[in-house]
């Protein structure tokens, strides 16, 4: 098993996802939980892009020199994960903004961001 760029990226993405998950479970500050979610998001994006990488190939963009319209299928990498991640990043921004707005509302009502102070649903 030789080490290649995509394996490094795969392991990095997995470790970032685990750190994000751990932070989301153990922190009590709402902003910290949302920050952990965004780390998880970044890790997942790195993982998906790494799955589409083929060693020794380049980006799927025709520039006329290295990649031309004829040798695109043997010179370029898989474009589908890139198209997926492109939209996933924008949606991730929207979701983060929505969560932050709800955190702001919680802070206005309860005067605290610590989830241990939200005692309404505890028994």
């Amino acid at each position: 098993m030789t080490l290649t760029i995509d394996k490094v990226a795969l392991v990095l993405g997995m470790i970032l996802m685990l750190i994000g998950l751990w932070g989301g479970f153990t922190r009590t500050n709402l902003l910290k939980i949302i920050l952990s979610f965004s780390i998880f998001d970044t890790g997942l994006n790195i993982l998906i892009v790494a799955l589409g990488y083929l060693p020794g190939r380049t980006a799927p963009i025709i520039d006329g020199n290295v990649v031309t319209a004829e040798n695109l299928a043997v010179k370029a990498i898989d474009p589908v994960p890139q198209a997926l991640v492109l939209t996933a990043i924008v949606i991730g921004f929207g979701v983060t903004a929505l969560m932050l707005a709800y955190a702001l509302k919680m802070n206005q009502h309860r005067k605290s961001l610590d989830i241990n102070h939200y005692t309404d649903l505890k028994w």
Partner: peptide, 30 residues
Amino acid sequence: TQETLNKTATYYNTNTPAEVGAANVVTAIV
């Protein structure tokens, strides 16, 4: 690690210049 493209990616990479006419395949897919 894969050495060759899978079927879907091969289709997109082979047919994009003729079917869509875009130089950037990611843009053509999106």
